[in-house]
Design a protein around this nucleic acid. Sequence first.
DNA 1: CTGAAAGCGCTAACAT
DNA 2: ATGTTAGCGCTTTCAG
Lengths: 334, 334
Amino acid sequence: MKPTIRDVAKMAGVSISTVSRVMNTPESVIESKRVRVQQAIEQLQYQPNSFARGLIYRKSFTLGLLIPDIENMYYAGIIRGMQDACIKLGYSLMICNTDRDKNRLLAYIDAFHEKQVDGIVFASDVIFPEYYEKLMSCKIPFVLISSHSDEYEVPSVEIDDEKAAYDAVKFLIELGHRDIGMIGFNHENSISGPPRYQGFLRALHEAGLDHNAEKIRCAAHRFEHAYDAAHELFTDYPELTAVFCVADEFAMGVISYLKDRNILVPGQVSVVGFDNLRMANMFIPKLTTISQPMYEMGYRAAEKLHELVTTGSTQVLREKLEHKLIVRESSRQR
Amino acid sequence: MKPTIRDVAKMAGVSISTVSRVMNTPESVIESKRVRVQQAIEQLQYQPNSFARGLIYRKSFTLGLLIPDIENMYYAGIIRGMQDACIKLGYSLMICNTDRDKNRLLAYIDAFHEKQVDGIVFASDVIFPEYYEKLMSCKIPFVLISSHSDEYEVPSVEIDDEKAAYDAVKFLIELGHRDIGMIGFNHENSISGPPRYQGFLRALHEAGLDHNAEKIRCAAHRFEHAYDAAHELFTDYPELTAVFCVADEFAMGVISYLKDRNILVPGQVSVVGFDNLRMANMFIPKLTTISQPMYEMGYRAAEKLHELVTTGSTQVLREKLEHKLIVRESSRQR
DNA sequence: CTGAAAGCGCTAACAT
DNA sequence: ATGTTAGCGCTTTCAG
């Protein structure tokens, strides 16, 4: 049987309230007793019961994290950052993988509600009205990560997707490329898809390269889809000498396709990715890409959620973190 | 304010015990009242407070998962499997990433203890006496995944590492290779390292190829280390035409090194990996590898833990799942 | 079949 | 400074 506060009190020869005080406001207890209590706690390996505490504080000191796809390496960095912040702030973390399934996500919100998590961070997903309503009716605070909401006042942390895409495409243009394609996210349900396409367009326009505007094909998150999308893209536009991909995984799919077609990267076609996954540096060729600060985003999201949970609001609502272009081997001067 | 059982009782015009019965033993409540209570629950969106429940049942209906490195894709499959099993069995899942840090792991065990998780699954790690003692003194049931313990009676689910390594090396031998090297795990702290080396040795011996026995270099889990290890290996044994890697990530590191040295894979050197990560199929060349059933392992581990939690023991202590050789592009006839 | 009441382990207000 | 006690929301005897 796990020892209770009573066992500690008995062993130390004090009342249970004194034990409680030693744990919560130690300075209010006279040294002699405090020491005795601490020894008893030590000896019994006593740990307060978190259910009892939760019942009183109405807090679980647990945060929830909802991610769309645990097999996507993008989230690993976010998880690490968030977990480190949670340790610092005294929270436990509950990670749930929705597999991009709406019902599953809704079920997880229920589970979070039942477990009374103090707050939730939502990764990458669009906030559908259903989610929003549910969260509001449960009164669970939440923040968005690599996502944001235009309709609702929801705190978020992300990068500037439009600018990041712009930077990537501009880089390709500066390399001398004139025929540039893009592999984007399927637009429905994608929050970062549209702004990245806008960035592509802006860079093109600025350089008088608008004729590339329609040279985009979309893929659904995975390598294989990007492979297929690349096939469509190059079938329709064989003149392409560069392609901008909105995810490193897409870049790998494209390069894989090109490889199968015996087209050299970067010899004949330059490819730039997005995210800077750990894999970007392991792939052959190493990927030129836009680096997202996944770790910091996870960390900041947790801090922001903490702020929201404790103060009821956040200083800045929509927060943008810095991205960076990393030039490696998959791109080359035209 | 979240509605309580009292609110439901009031609305339905019954006592709180009746409400409780409707939730736990509905057949013991007369239909008319039961219906009224259910309607009230529905209307108020009532959810029982899990703290109060936990206080009584001394159960959290939560399982803990300890993994060494969330950025290693190997664990993604395990997480998915375990999470699906948890949904089926009615548990929540708490995933913690130890970053292979002993103190951090110990701290997580404390956190699990405090949160009163019903059981823990330990991924890949050796069970040091400290861990074992701690877990025993907390009386938290636990199972090992892709690991096992010779000293203690701990349930585990893994593959047959020796046999898997044997299969991989034998495959290389059948391809006609006579000079075969290996990139293994650093032996201290590795549970699967030694048996995989044994499998390597056995295949070698069986074919009269014992002269390769010492052609092994070790790496510490990451791509970069494998790259360096490959450098050492090929510097010492330039005659090698094949190398067996105990992880896909190592295989990628080796191929990357070979690429930088302008040695063709599989043209000049064949490489076989281990795990069959999703990446194995995205890499160039696609990896020939030993496939581990990560998803099933996670799933089984959760089921086994559930069995242990509910019955106090498991039918079979150490469970082995099937591996499979997947032949792709990184290996070729000598 | 149903209600009243005890109690799970803890905190905080109230006495002393 | 410290002990006593009333709950937090729920389940579970125990009466009726």
